[in-house]
């Protein structure tokens, strides 16, 4: 369990990092928190020719609350975002999700942007970005682009980030008025990747009627699965909405759980998450589990 040979780069500026990455092309891999990449290297499941360690770059460990949302820099660790009061106030789902990400030791090192680029469909943060309709800012020498979440996650462990591109930041839209969020999951052990997990976003009008109800499911398919259940929620209530969510996922059997159980769990968790999000939107915080 030692990595295969690679060339190690530790650029001192974003410009230098982009140059090195551009030169490395498909052989380049960015090392930020390393919580997924290092095990992949040690198990020789990944063998990039060039490892570009961005940890010495300055100005990327930022959590900025902007009027429309929260912008998280490429070197902001999970723990830092989790503890940011401003981020939690602007978009509570960030903290709700980050508490479910692995363990404190991993959150101390792993980065939010790294988790997004890694694009694991079992991970919480890609689901959050997808549910909120956020975006990821990618850069290469002379070009910066923002890729919306809907187009960013392209497959299991595959994102729209192209060889030679460096992810600079991610943007999570703020929670609107009369909106609520919740994240529920079931894992085999505390901190494990969830067997099933559902985050929900509910928006109400002034008469407390549901105007938007969306859920996103983790471990439910090749990419985070966003389901709009606004119609169901209005017509038949949360239980029916949750049943709809459960129907829309495509879980698979694995050594930890059957697909049928994951689908069942998704339904149970969707109802919990939607109800809690709605209660939160209505200003009733007493119903949190």
């Amino acid at each position: 369990m030692k990595p295969p040979p690679f060339e190690y780069h530790a650029p001192r500026s974003v410009a230098e990092a982009m140059e090195v990455l551009a030169a490395a092309g498909p052989e380049g891999k960015v090392l930020a928190g390393g919580q997924s990449l290092i095990p992949l290297l040690n198990m020789r499941l990944a063998a990039p020719g060039h490892l570009v360690d961005v940890n010495r770059l300055t100005g990327l460990d930022t959590v900025e609350v902007e009027p429309g949302g929260v912008r998280v820099g490429a070197l902001a660790r999970h723990a830092r975002v989790e503890r940011s009061a401003g981020a939690a106030a602007a978009q509570p789902l960030l903290r709700q999700a980050l508490r479910l990400v692995a363990h404190p030791v991993i959150r101390n090192r792993g980065t939010v942007v790294g988790s997004l680029v890694h694009a694991d469909p079992a991970a919480e943060l890609p689901a959050v970005l997808a549910l909120l309709g956020g975006s990821v800012r990618l850069a290469r020498p002379g070009a910066v682009r923002d890729v919306p979440a809907a187009g960013f996650f392209t497959g299991p462990l595959e994102s729209a980030a192209e060889p030679g591109e460096l992810a600079l930041s991610a943007f999570f839209p703020a929670l609107g008025p009369r909106c609520g969020t919740a994240f529920h999951e079931v894992a085999r052990r505390h901190g494990d990747y969830a067997l099933a997990g559902v985050a929900a976003l509910v928006r109400l009008d002034d008469g407390l009627r549901v105007t938007t109800a969306r859920a996103v499911c983790v471990s439910a398919g090749p990419v985070p699965v966003v389901v709009d259940v606004t119609g169901h929620a209005c017509a038949d209530g949360w239980a029916a909405a949750a049943r709809d969510v459960a129907k829309r996922v495509e879980p698979e059997d694995d050594i930890h759980a059957s697909a049928a159980y994951r689908r069942h769990l998704t339904g149970v968790l969707a109802e919990r998450a939607l109800r809690e999000a709605a209660a939160s939107a209505a200003g009733d915080v007493g119903t949190r589990r």
Binding site: P39, R188, R189, H190, G191, I255, H256
Partner: peptide, 27 residues
């Protein structure tokens, strides 16, 4: 939690601490 999951070809499918589940102190 713990089991060694062999497939019919004799491959151990969970030969890591990610998939061989030992209880944490939380369990």
């Amino acid at each position: 939690y713990e089991r060694m999951v062999y497939d019919e070809h004799g491959q151990l499918l969970n030969a890591s601490f990610m998939d061989f589940l030992m209880p944490y102190v939380t369990e």
